[in-house]
Computed example of a mutant assay.
Amino acid sequence: MKLKIVAFALTLIVSFVRCGESEAVVGDTVKTTFTNPVWDGADPWLTKQGNEYVYCYSANNSIVVSRSIYMTRKGELKRIWQAPATGWNSHSVWAPEIHFVDGRWYVYYAAGSTPGSPFINQRTGVLRSKTADVFSDYEDMGMLYTGDNPSDPQSNVWAIDMTVLEHQGKLFAIWSGWLEQKDTDATPQHLYIQEMENPYTLKGTRVLLSSPQESWETGEPLNLNEGPQILKNGEQVFVVYSCRESWLVEYRQGMLQLNDPDGNLLDPANWTKNGPVFQGNSQVHGVGHCSFVKSPDGAEDWIVYHSKKDANPGWNRDVRMQPFTWNADGTPNFGTAIPAGKEINRPSGEVEIENAE
C-alpha cells in the first residue's frame, strides 16, 4: 500500500513539474504583435544597414545612435557626439539623421549658438564616421552654407532637417529653411534642394523647391514645410514632408513627386505636390517628421513617425510605426494613422529572428 502511495505521489510530482515546464514554454512564446507608441521622442530617423536597424536621435544636446536587429526595439546605445560648450552648434541640437554614403556614416543635424527661444540661429552641420562602423568615432565636418551667396559665409541662412538624396550617381541635399535671415522664429519655412560636391560640401546655390501654399498645408499662425524625407519605389522618387504647425493637431504630411527621373532635379517644375498624404485623426493627434524602412525580410514597407501625446498645443511627442502599401500608379498609400494601444503585427521576419535567438 505504501509503495502505491509513493508511486502515486511521484506521479503527481512529475505531472506538476511537466505542467510547470509546459507553462514556462507558453510564457516564453515570442509575441507576434506590438502596440504604438514604441518609445518616447520626436523626429525619428530609422534606417536599415545590412541586418541591423540604426536609430539616430538627439538627447541633452548630444547625438545618440542605437543599433538593433529589431525594428520595434532599440538596441545597444552610444553617444557619438556631444555639443561643444561654445560655438555655432553649442545649443538646441535638433533632428539628426544618419546616412551611409561611400563607406562612411554621415550625420546631418541642426543646432544653434544660443539656448532657448527665439530659435533664430539654427544652422546645419555634418559629422563623419572614421570607419564603416556606426559606433566608430566621428569628426565634425563643420557647418554647411545654406544661403544664397556662398562666397559670403556671414550671409548664411537658418536651416534645419537636412536629408540627402542619392540619384543617378549624384548626391543632393534637401532641407527646411527661411527665405532670408530673420530676428524671429515665427518665420515661414520652405524646402530647398542643392547638389552636393561630396557628403559634407554643397555645390552651386540653393533652389527653392516648395513653399507652404496649398490650402491643406497652410493655416494659422505659422506656415511650415519641414522634415523632408526621401521615399523611392523603383525609379519613382518622392519627398514626403511635414506641414502645418508642428505643435498643433493639424501637423500632417505632404508629398513631392519627381515627374521625370532623367530630368533636372533642381527644376521645381519637375516636381508635383500632393497632399495631405498622411494625417492624424480623432485618436492620433498630428503626424510628422517620418522616415521609411523595410521589414527584416524586405517584404514590407514601414513609415516611422512622431505624434503628439495629446491634443494640447506643444511638443510632447512619441514615436510610432506602421506598415504601408502602394497604389496602382506606384505612389505610396499610408492609410490611416493607427491609434495607440491597438495591436499591430510585428514587421515581417522579426518574429523569426527572435525565435532563432
Score class of each variant (00 low, 15 high):
267 D>L: 08
316 N>K: 12
309 K>F: 02
294 K>Q: 10
267 D>Q: 06
295 S>P: 08
305 Y>E: 09
318 D>F: 14
295 S>E: 12
280 G>F: 02
264 N>R: 05
308 K>V: 01
296 P>C: 09
260 D>K: 15
255 M>A: 01
268 P>G: 11
307 S>A: 13
317 R>V: 06
294 K>H: 11
306 H>C: 08
282 S>V: 02
259 N>E: 14
295 S>I: 11
291 S>P: 09
319 V>H: 06
289 H>I: 00
256 L>K: 10
290 C>P: 06
308 K>H: 12
270 N>E: 03
298 G>R: 09
289 H>A: 02
317 R>L: 03
268 P>R: 15
281 N>K: 02
290 C>R: 00
293 V>R: 14
315 W>M: 09
300 E>N: 03
272 T>C: 10
299 A>V: 02
296 P>L: 15
301 D>A: 05
304 V>I: 13
282 S>W: 05
264 N>W: 15
276 P>K: 11
267 D>R: 06
301 D>G: 02
321 M>C: 14
294 K>A: 05
255 M>L: 09
303 I>T: 13
274 N>D: 12
280 G>D: 03
314 G>D: 14
268 P>E: 05
311 A>H: 11
311 A>G: 15
266 L>Q: 03
305 Y>A: 09
302 W>C: 02
264 N>I: 15
266 L>I: 01
303 I>L: 08
291 S>A: 15
297 D>S: 04
263 G>D: 07
270 N>P: 02
272 T>N: 05
298 G>Y: 07
286 G>S: 07
300 E>H: 04
281 N>D: 13
278 F>S: 00
261 P>R: 11
290 C>V: 10
275 G>H: 07
310 D>S: 13
308 K>N: 07
289 H>K: 02
287 V>I: 14
312 N>E: 08
261 P>Q: 11
303 I>A: 13
315 W>H: 14
278 F>A: 01
273 K>H: 12
266 L>V: 06
296 P>E: 02
272 T>Y: 03
